[in-house]
Amino acid sequence: MDVFMKGLSKAKEGVVAAAEKTKQGVAEAAGKTKEGVLYVGSKTKEGVVHGVATVAEKTKEQVTNVGGAVVTGVTAVAQKTVEGAGSIAAATGFVKKDQLGKNEEGAPQEGILEDMPVDPDNEAYEMPSEEGYQDYEPEA
Rank of each mutant, 00 (worst) to 15 (best):
M1E: 00
D2G: 01
D2T: 11
D2K: 03
D2A: 09
D2C: 09
V3E: 00
V3F: 02
V3D: 02
F4S: 00
M5F: 01
M5Y: 03
M5N: 10
K6M: 04
K6L: 04
K6T: 04
G7N: 14
G7C: 12
G7P: 03
L8F: 04
L8R: 00
L8I: 02
S9K: 09
K10S: 04
K10M: 11
K10F: 14
A11L: 14
A11S: 06
A11N: 00
A11V: 15
K12G: 03
K12P: 00
E13K: 04
E13A: 14
E13G: 07
G14E: 07
G14T: 15
G14A: 15
V15M: 08
V15G: 01
V16S: 12
V16K: 09
A17H: 12
A17G: 05
A17M: 12
A17T: 09
A18W: 05
A19S: 02
E20L: 14
E20T: 13
E20C: 10
E20F: 15
E20V: 08
E20W: 10
K21Q: 07
K21M: 05
K21Y: 12
K23T: 04
K23E: 00
K23V: 05
Q24Y: 15
Q24H: 11
Q24K: 15
Q24M: 11
G25S: 15
G25Q: 13
G25E: 14
G25H: 15
G25P: 01
V26Q: 00
V26N: 00
V26E: 00
V26T: 01
V26Y: 13
V26D: 00
V26I: 14
A27N: 09
A27K: 14
A27L: 12
A27E: 02
E28H: 05
E28P: 01
E28C: 07
E28V: 11
A29Q: 05
A29F: 14
A30K: 03
A30E: 00
A30G: 02
G31R: 13
G31Q: 10
K32D: 00
K32E: 01
K32G: 01
K32Q: 07
T33A: 09
K34Q: 03
K34C: 04
K34H: 06
E35Y: 13
E35T: 07
E35D: 14
G36E: 06
V37R: 00
V37Q: 00
V37F: 09
V37K: 00
L38N: 04
L38V: 10
L38M: 14
L38A: 03
Y39C: 04
Y39M: 04
V40G: 01
V40C: 05
V40A: 04
V40M: 07
G41M: 12
G41H: 15
K43E: 00
K43L: 04
T44S: 08
T44C: 14
T44I: 11
T44M: 13
T44Y: 15
K45P: 03
E46L: 05
E46C: 09
G47I: 08
V48W: 15
V49R: 14
H50K: 12
G51I: 15
G51K: 07
G51S: 02
V52K: 01
V52R: 02
V52G: 02
A53F: 05
A53H: 11
A53Y: 14
A53E: 11
A53P: 01
A53R: 15
T54P: 01
T54C: 15
T54K: 06
T54W: 13
V55Q: 02
V55L: 14
V55W: 13
V55R: 01
V55I: 15
A56N: 02
A56C: 15
A56D: 00
A56Q: 06
E57N: 11
E57G: 06
E57A: 11
E57C: 06
K58C: 14
K58W: 07
T59K: 01
T59F: 10
K60Q: 03
K60L: 12
E61V: 05
Q62N: 08
Q62D: 01
Q62I: 11
V63H: 01
V63L: 10
V63S: 02
V63M: 12
V63G: 02
T64P: 02
N65D: 04
V66W: 11
G67K: 07
G67I: 10
G67E: 03
G67Y: 12
G67D: 01
G67N: 06
G67P: 01
G68C: 02
G68N: 15
G68P: 04
G68A: 04
G68M: 15
A69Y: 14
A69N: 07
V70W: 09
V70S: 02
V70M: 14
V70R: 02
V70E: 00
V70H: 01
T72R: 11
G73I: 11
G73A: 13
G73V: 14
G73T: 10
T75V: 15
T75S: 11
A76V: 10
A76M: 09
A78H: 11
A78D: 02
A78I: 10
A78M: 12
A78W: 13
Q79C: 06
K80N: 03
K80H: 07
T81S: 09
T81Q: 02
T81E: 01
V82S: 07
V82T: 12
V82Y: 08
E83Y: 13
E83L: 04
E83V: 13
E83M: 12
G84F: 14
G84W: 08
G84K: 13
G84P: 03
A85F: 06
A85H: 03
A85I: 15
G86V: 12
G86Q: 07
S87Q: 15
S87Y: 04
S87E: 11
S87I: 14
I88F: 10
A89L: 11
A89E: 02
A89C: 10
A89H: 08
A89G: 07
A89S: 05
A90T: 12
A90I: 03
A91K: 03
A91Q: 04
A91I: 09
A91M: 12
T92N: 05
G93V: 10
G93E: 06
G93P: 04
G93T: 10
G93M: 02
G93Q: 04
F94Y: 10
F94Q: 13
V95M: 09
V95R: 13
K96Q: 07
K96T: 14
K96D: 04
K97I: 10
K97R: 11
D98T: 10
D98K: 09
Q99D: 09
Q99E: 06
Q99F: 05
Q99I: 09
Q99G: 13
Q99W: 12
L100I: 07
L100T: 06
L100V: 07
L100F: 10
K102V: 03
N103A: 04
N103H: 05
E104D: 09
E104T: 07
E105L: 08
E105F: 05
G106E: 06
G106C: 14
P108S: 06
Q109F: 04
Q109L: 02
Q109C: 07
E110H: 02
I112K: 04
I112W: 06
I112S: 15
I112F: 05
I112P: 12
I112D: 03
L113N: 02
L113D: 11
L113F: 10
L113T: 13
L113R: 12
L113Q: 13
E114H: 15
D115I: 08
D115S: 07
M116L: 09
P117D: 08
P117Y: 11
P117H: 10
P117V: 13
V118R: 13
V118W: 02
V118C: 09
V118T: 06
D119C: 14
D119R: 11
D119S: 04
P120T: 07
P120W: 03
D121K: 14
D121T: 13
N122R: 11
N122F: 06
N122E: 09
N122A: 05
E123C: 14
E123R: 03
E123Y: 12
E123G: 10
Y125G: 15
Y125K: 12
E126F: 04
E126C: 07
M127S: 05
M127E: 14
S129W: 03
S129P: 09
S129C: 06
S129H: 07
E130P: 10
E131S: 08
G132Q: 11
G132W: 12
G132F: 07
Y133T: 04
Y133D: 13
Q134D: 05
D135N: 08
D135P: 02
Y136V: 06
Y136L: 06
Y136D: 01
Y136E: 01
E137H: 06
E137S: 09
E137M: 05
E137W: 04
P138W: 07
E139M: 09
E139H: 11
A140Y: 09
A140G: 12
A140N: 08
A140C: 10
A140L: 09
